[in-house]
Simulated scan of single mutants.
Amino acid sequence: MTQLQFTLDMEVLKDSLLNSNMDSVYKSALVLILNEFMEKERDDYLQAYPYERTDDRRDYRNGYYERELTLKVGKIKLKVPRTRNGEFSTSVFEKYSRCEQALVLSMLEMVINGVSTRKVTHIVEQLCGEAVSKSFVSSLTQKLDPIVNDWSKRPLNTVYYPFIFVDAMYIKVREHNRVVSKAVYIAKALTEKNKREIIGLSVDHNESFESWSQFFKQLKSRGLQSPKLVISDAHLGLQKSIQQEFIGTSWQRCNVHFKRNIIEKLPKKDSTEIRLMIKRVFEAVTIEDIRTFKEELMTKFSDNPKYAKALEILDEGFEDTIQYMNHPESIRPHIRSTNSLERLNQEVRRRERVIRIFPNTQSAFRLIGATLMHYQETTYDKKKSLTK
């Protein structure tokens, strides 16, 4: 076997040490080691030492070519051995390509976790000693496109989702040299085994009946069956699209938003009693009790004009807000509001604030999709079912 031999230029290394330029020392040592390692690989491939005559020889040496390699200490230049038939290939670059892939994945991870492009370029420069442009980081994120697209189009017909939560949030996007507002539609669901799953994402111009209907059609085209309950806020276009697209499905108005709408219409003073009775209504354990407590409240305060607007809201939206009472008590805390979806939206918003304005709609879909995938994997997939 070929022995590794190093011919060190002691004057260069001594000068580097005396001047405390340790990076130069590391680079010099790496160049010597890697060049010698590649030389050994060529000897093993040829099955012959330099100038050796043997019948086992597979090919002949054919000089070297230079190639750069970027490592943690910076960029180094290596002499890569060649053979005449060109079939020899060193493993050095293949091995270090894994490091480069790990670096690329780390950069993507930083972007998904809300690190700005400028900070990513600075971190990479500190790690590798080489600067990368912001455009390079941006182009790198485009590698997420096929992954996010496959995730967003995956089939939904293998699992039944009895409960679906939907909501929209707004972001800023550049479009034809203008900054416009766009709606991001997100759908989250609970399986029959009470496991959380993010099932839908779309970016559209605004929140409307047509946009919501199109969003639901996309989910159904992927195999989504009509759920038992859809939980959302009280957007009129959303309500209408649920009725049209999911025949036989009940709509659950977000309990938290509904109570907030009622409380906002109450006077700040002299309303302690009615506030306590409203709390009593929504803490009822049975559907009979919740209706009874509501009627008692309406009867007691119906003649007081100070509470007229609040009571009107309560009466009008009451039935849509207690649909969760038709389901087992153990699951009710998880389906009576969109709080869990709003927490997910906050996670998306945390990353979106770093960017502030997306360069285009596709970049928004890409980053938000990658964020949702990451959240699903790190949060929902690692949690146990909500109920046993």
Rank of each mutant, 00 (worst) to 15 (best):
T2V: 13
Q3F: 06
V12W: 07
L13Q: 01
K14W: 05
D15K: 14
S20I: 10
N21V: 11
M22Q: 12
K27T: 12
L34H: 01
E39Y: 07
E41W: 04
R53P: 12
D56Y: 12
R58S: 11
D59V: 06
N62E: 02
N62L: 04
R67H: 14
L69V: 10
V73P: 01
K79Y: 06
N85L: 07
G86C: 06
E94L: 12
Y96D: 00
C99V: 08
E100K: 15
M107Y: 00
M107D: 04
L108P: 03
G114T: 07
G114L: 07
V115K: 06
K119W: 02
K119G: 03
T121C: 15
T121H: 04
L127M: 13
G129Q: 05
G129Y: 00
V132E: 02
S139V: 07
I147T: 08
D150E: 07
W151R: 09
P162H: 05
F163K: 04
I164C: 04
I164Q: 01
F165S: 03
V166F: 02
M169V: 13
K172P: 03
E175F: 02
R178E: 11
R178S: 10
S181D: 14
A189W: 02
L201Q: 04
S202T: 06
K217I: 14
Q218N: 08
Q225V: 14
S226H: 06
P227E: 13
Q239H: 08
Q239S: 05
G248A: 09
S250H: 12
Q252Y: 04
C254T: 11
N255V: 00
K259M: 07
R260L: 03
N261W: 00
I262P: 05
P267Y: 07
K269N: 15
E273N: 10
I274G: 06
I278M: 12
F282S: 08
V285P: 02
T292Q: 13
E296R: 13
M298H: 08
T299N: 05
T299F: 09
K300P: 07
K306W: 01
Y307G: 03
L314E: 03
D315H: 14
F318S: 09
Q323T: 15
H327E: 15
R332E: 11
R332N: 11
P333C: 08
P333N: 05
H334V: 01
R336F: 05
T338Q: 00
T338F: 00
N339I: 09
L341W: 00
R343E: 10
V348D: 05
R353N: 09
F358Q: 03
T361I: 14
S363K: 15
F365I: 14
I368R: 02
A370R: 04
A370M: 11
H374G: 05
